[in-house]
Amino acid sequence: AEVIQRRPKSQKKNMSDDEINEGLRSLASPGDPTSKYTVSKKLGAGASGCVYMAKPKEGDAVVAIKSMDLTNQPKKELLITEIEVMKTYRHQNIVNFLDCYFLSEKSELWVVMEYLDGGALTDVVTETIMNEGQIAAVTRECLQALNYLHSKGIIHRDIKSDNVLLGMNGSVKLTDFGFCAQLSGDNSKRQTMVGTPYWMAPEVVSRKHYGKKVDVWSMGIMIIEMLEGEPPYLNETPLKAIYRIATKGKPEIKNFEKLSKLLQNFIDRTLEVEVDTRADTDELLLHDFMKCAKDLKTLRPLIVAAKQA
């Protein structure tokens, strides 16, 4: 039988727990957050932790607090990346980082962020029908955030409607930087499979080296969410979805011919399997489909309807 080679151990030295805790402690503010914030309702839960609404004891601007139990985090060093990225990179389409606390006795990490009262884009795509003008507006705002991150050598790697937050005024912001990767000069490609299966690009699922254009593919899948309410293959298991992406490439889109020519072309430019031919964020921001974007205020009725639903 063919000798199966063991996968070479990753050269990148894995950080020890102490190094990670030290890294987190250096990034965190001193003091106990429970003395500064009153935590109220739970907003949601994700792979890395839970998000709560909270109010500062002094002042009245509502905030969102993501609390993460450090004992069961698969890749703790990624938390350091998340905080560093959120602390360093500021943009109007990125959820604003406010503060972070490291509770060593409970080995918990609290990240305090701005609160967006419109909720996640997921609720809007699953509960309401978006028109092309609204899809263009949301897409443009997300592309602006991605264009900024990519210009800083950062890939988000987990673009999906769950990680796009909305304000009641129609503001659109990207969040959840726990899994983003920083591309340093010599290492401008990554290989670890990170993200959510249904939104993953073909080069990720087939374990090839990948770069920033994985975010462009996921944006294309998110446009399908805005059209159909969910990504392709969500009714299948994650493994089958990954198999379909690897073998089929560009997914079928229902009533694709009914979409405007501009939107059809825009989707084709994002869901291009060949990475070199796939568009980047610069090209997409200049695409004529962006001119169809309606005023962000037109998102408000969708958000209200989604909340009622």
Binding site: T122, D158, T192, M193, L239
Partner: peptide, 22 residues
């Protein structure tokens, strides 16, 4: 129905590295 709902929600969770089923 609750466990089905929980499974549906878990499908949208982020994955880091290859999971057990790969």
């Amino acid at each position: 129905a609750k466990s089905k709902h929980r499974y549906q929600r878990k499908k949208r969770y982020t994955m880091v590295g290859s999971p057990y089923w790969m």
